[in-house]
């Protein structure tokens, strides 16, 4: 039991408030900086009273970095990753929890390993695969002499190639293939009573029917939580988009922000950079606010 006394209340609120200030201060400073003009933003110390150029700066940032299409790109990617994750993880967790088949534990551990090897660690091989999806198969065929055999027999040289650089699939797929979501679902599925599964079997529902009619509706809080987290995570990706999008038409908002950062020798236009940052920050914020109710429920506990 936690005691409730006025003094304790005061201190808990004080701690909360200090924490809140710590979290919010950077955002406030970004917003204030975004409202100054070139001279004010470079004052030392910078004035903490908002300036009057907010909308002008936002417009400048928007046009300079061409944020419209970039935001759209970011949104497509983040949404794709979130949706892909929510679906793939649900399916893999369903398979692991509800079916007994040979190699189940092996697959389970393979999925688990991806937790220990995030994209950043295996970025070079992943790049190679995305550059040519068939690369691994080509290598296997070359090594086993299969391509040589086929060439001898049919005269056709086997040269499989499918590049995903500068494409949405290339951006999205490698980010979808990790285990976080699978574990979230697995933990939840394990709490679903066996009787429910058996009742569905008695009612004549097959595995897929059970998955769609019962398991998925029950996991909607989980889906919301996972979707939100993955949306934010994908939105904030930097290294991967930077690496595989050389083409401006596929550039992401987050990576394009660097265009707004003043160059050495250029004008120190930090107010524009801050305005751009603010714009790029907004969509994830919006998603969190929108999904918050579900999100928290999905992470905290399972409905009984």
């Amino acid at each position: 039991m936690v005691e409730r006394t006025p003094i304790l209340n005061f201190f808990t609120h004080l701690i909360l408030f200090v924490g809140f200030i710590f979290c919010v201060a950077p955002f406030v400073i970004v917003a204030i900086a975004a409202s100054h003009n070139l001279k004010d933003v470079n004052d030392v110390p910078m004035s903490l009273l908002p300036g009057s150029d907010f909308w002008v700066n936002i417009k400048t940032a928007w046009t300079t970095a061409d944020l419209g299409p970039k935001l759209l790109n970011s949104f497509i990617m983040a949404f794709g990753v979130a949706a892909g994750k929510v679906i793939i993880s649900a399916l893999t967790a369903f398979s692991i929890v509800y079916f007994r088949y040979p190699g189940r534990m092996l697959i389970f551990w393979l999925i688990f390993i991806t937790l220990m090897l995030p994209l950043e660690v295996r970025i070079v091989p992943t790049y190679a695969v995305v550059a040519n999806v068939f690369e691994p198969y080509q290598t296997i065929m070359d090594l086993t002499g299969l391509s040589w055999l086929i060439e001898k027999l049919s005269g056709v040289q086997v040269q499989l190639s499918l590049g995903l650089l500068n494409s949405y699939s290339g951006l999205i797929l490698p980010l979808v293939a990790t285990a976080t979501g699978t574990f979230l679902y697995r933990q939840f599925f394990l709490t679903v009573p066996d009787e429910l599964t058996e009742a569905a079997r008695m009612d004549g529902a097959g595995a897929l029917r059970f998955f769609v009619d019962i398991l998925l509706p029950l996991s909607r809080n989980n889906m919301a939580a996972l979707g939100t987290i993955m949306f934010l995570w994908a939105w904030n990706q930097y290294l991967w988009p930077l690496l595989i999008t050389t083409d401006q038409s596929h550039a992401m908002a987050v990576t394009e922000l660097k265009q707004l950062i003043p160059n050495v020798g250029g004008a120190p236009e930090w107010h524009i950079a801050m305005a751009g940052t603010l714009i790029v920050m907004l969509p994830p914020l919006f998603v969190v606010v929108l999904m918050q109710r579900w999100f928290v429920r999905g992470l905290i506990a399972t409905e009984k």
Binding site: P193, L196, A199, A200, M202, D203, G204
Partner: peptide, 29 residues
């Protein structure tokens, strides 16, 4: 399979589908 045996079962903990209404629960099969 259970569905092919023509049996219906009542479980100890009822095992009702929590997200379905009473009507949907009864009518699910």
């Amino acid at each position: 399979e259970p569905r092919e045996r023509g049996c219906a079962m009542v479980f100890q903990n009822y095992a009702l589908y929590p997200h379905m209404s009473v009507a949907q629960n009864i009518g699910y099969s």
